[in-house]
Design a protein around this nucleic acid. Structure first.
Lengths: 195, 195
DNA sequence: GGCATATCTGAACGCGCGTTCAATTCCAAG
DNA sequence: CTTGGAATTGAACGCGCGTTCAGATATGCC
């Protein structure tokens, strides 16, 4: 049950996004009602419509925000010189970024089918842009003959799937530290591309 | 629109499962109504309840059926001798099996959260049993010093994620044949475990 | 204190949901 | 042709959905 005080706050917008992110990730977009989101924020359902035109846009903005954060964060990474250093930077960045935002990652992968076609296309474009970053590294590595990748597109998809998979099993405070996880994954990635 | 003839058929049960599988995979369990499934089969919604006690059980039976097929199919595979041959058998089997059943695979990974706790536990147990098959191979390989895997559990999750990822991008009749995809993935798997 | 404005409530709208069940239709066996 | 049982219909049930909006409430400024 949510709070009952009538005090107004200036931060309802972010609180709605947080609640929606958490609820969508746990129960799925289609299974979560606007009333549930509102209850989590401590507000009536109607109030949500001061901050979003509809439920679909709420989902889309969460996914767009996540993908743009992802791209911006990768652009900001110091990447080092040479394809191998860049591949290591990518692998470690990907794991770290994804472990920091399990809910947003979950939504970005699971709720694509609940986006209207136009919104879907925009999110997909952002995802492809991210994949292209990795593929460029692999192409450079293959050209410089420091990696053996018979098909860069396939290798891109394989490596991203492997790295993203860490979110399905890693639990904070578990058997392995983040640094150890990063190191082991990086070694598997390096070997997988024959470097 | 479905057919309107009143002729009874003895195969309504399987047709319901087929329709539910396809619809759940495309739109998600929560977003698909019993009336939509019924329409796909060419029947009224009430008729579904001659074949399933409720919607939740319909989902559960689809997932349980898929996981049991997966385990049975793997048991039936000729695996060859030695950890490396078995790892190759596993990688190739996993890709083949998953590419043959994209809808069931999608459901098995995406609709776990829509299972009631008891049903979830049963499906999870089956999934763990499958993962254990791979982990046993990796442990044997590490013990025989033909593989280098610092953590078998992590490697298991990483490899399964990588292999399952093929379903997200592979399209029949595309640029790469199944055999070529299998071969490239197997090479990445082999290298990833340092063999 | 009074007022403008941003924020929120609470009720309502039409709709589709999962599920039930009496009545009907169909098929096969005698 | 009749009959018994399986298969299916079609209407109904209570409920919660996304969304709207007139009215109430709180806040910051004069």
């Amino acid at each position: 049950m949510a709070r009952k005080t009538g005090s107004h706050s200036q931060i309802t917008g972010p609180r709605i996004r947080d609640a929606a992110l958490r609820l969508f990730a746990w129960h799925g977009y289609a299974a979560v009602s606007m009333r549930q989101i509102a209850a989590e924020v401590g507000v009536q359902a109607g109030a949500l419509y001061l901050y979003t035109p509809d439920k679909q846009t709420l989902l889309f903005e969460l996914m767009r925000g996540h993908m743009e954060e992802l791209l911006a964060a990768w652009q900001a990474v110091r990447k080092g010189d040479g394809p191998l250093a860049q591949l290591e930077a990518f692998a470690r960045f990907h794991i770290r970024f994804h472990l920091d935002r399990p809910d947003a990652v979950f939504i970005a992968y699971m709720e694509l089918r609940n986006l209207q076609p136009e919104n879907f296309a925009r999110v997909e474009a952002l995802r492809r842009a991210y994949e292209d970053e990795l593929e460029a590294i692999l192409r450079d590595g293959a050209a410089a003959e420091v990696m053996r990748v018979p098909d860069t597109k396939l290798a891109t998809m394989a490596l991203i799937a492997m790295l993203t998979g860490v979110n399905t099993w890693y639990r904070e405070g578990g058997r392995l530290s983040r640094e150890r996880v990063e190191r082991i994954y990086w070694n598997m990635v390096r070997r997988a591309v024959g470097a």
